[in-house]
């Protein structure tokens, strides 16, 4: 029997670590997909096509208005019924977080692109750049500073949101923690550790976002 809390923590560390990797895998996959999807969303939203804007707006409002957990349930329980495709709970968590994150990152990207002076776009077009070149060489590099801090904030929300995966049955860090508690009854120690785990990931990101925002707000 382990005598102290630290000793117990040392013993269960490998098990908790495997759970943590699952949690981080969900979060990282969602962050990656959200970033790519968000860039696409932002560029499409800055083109100024009415119908496209309305469509993106609808998508954004839908994912903003309805809570994340509701989307998780809808995809996890509803998707197999409607389409016959049954996703694993892991894939389902990544998909829902990505769809949500892409709309949030997308709004940040769209806002960043639209905040640039119109002359930048016009000058690029006057030089004969293609739309692809215009965005890659002129607009996105300039908007990057304005986009980065709020995008990091979306990342921390995605990491926090990944905790909800336990509620559709993913065996991630919280579930593993609960299994350890069932064996050891060390509620405070394990939930305290989980608290610290998420804090240690999210807090540096929040600090980075704030520091970058301060540094770049005069740029």
């Amino acid at each position: 029997m382990p005598s102290s809390g630290l000793e117990l923590l040392w013993q269960v560390a490998p098990q908790l670590g495997r759970g943590a990797i699952q949690t981080l895998a969900i979060a990282l996959a969602a962050i990656l997909c959200s970033t790519l999807g968000g860039l696409l969303y932002g560029v499409l939203g800055s083109l100024g096509r009415r119908a496209l804007d309305a469509l993106l707006r609808f998508y954004l409002e839908l994912f903003r208005a309805i809570p994340l957990l509701v989307w998780l349930y809808l995809f996890f329980f509803g998707l197999p019924l409607l389409t016959g495709v049954s996703l694993s709970s892991f894939a389902c968590a990544v998909l829902v977080l990505s769809l949500w994150g892409a709309s949030e990152v997308g709004e940040v990207v769209r806002g960043g692109l639209q905040s640039l002076p119109r002359a930048q776009r016009e000058a690029g077009l006057a030089l004969g750049l293609s739309t692809w070149q215009l965005y890659r060489l002129v607009l996105i590099p300039q908007a990057l500073k304005r986009m980065t801090p709020p995008t990091i904030n979306v990342y921390t929300r995605l990491i926090k949101g990944s905790s909800l995966a336990v509620l559709i049955g993913v065996i991630e860090v919280i579930k593993v923690g609960q299994q350890i508690i069932e064996r050891t009854h060390e509620h405070v120690l394990i939930y305290g550790t989980l608290f610290v785990f998420f804090f240690l990931i999210c807090y540096p990101l929040s600090l980075a976002s704030r520091a970058l925002e301060r540094r770049w707000s005069y740029a």
Partner: peptide
């Protein structure tokens, strides 16, 4: 602390850990 941790963990801590 409250802004950088998930609500679910806060909730579980309050519901499951505070009794001990």
């Amino acid at each position: 602390l409250a802004r950088n941790t998930p609500l679910l963990i806060q909730l579980f801590f309050i519901y499951f850990a505070l009794p001990s």
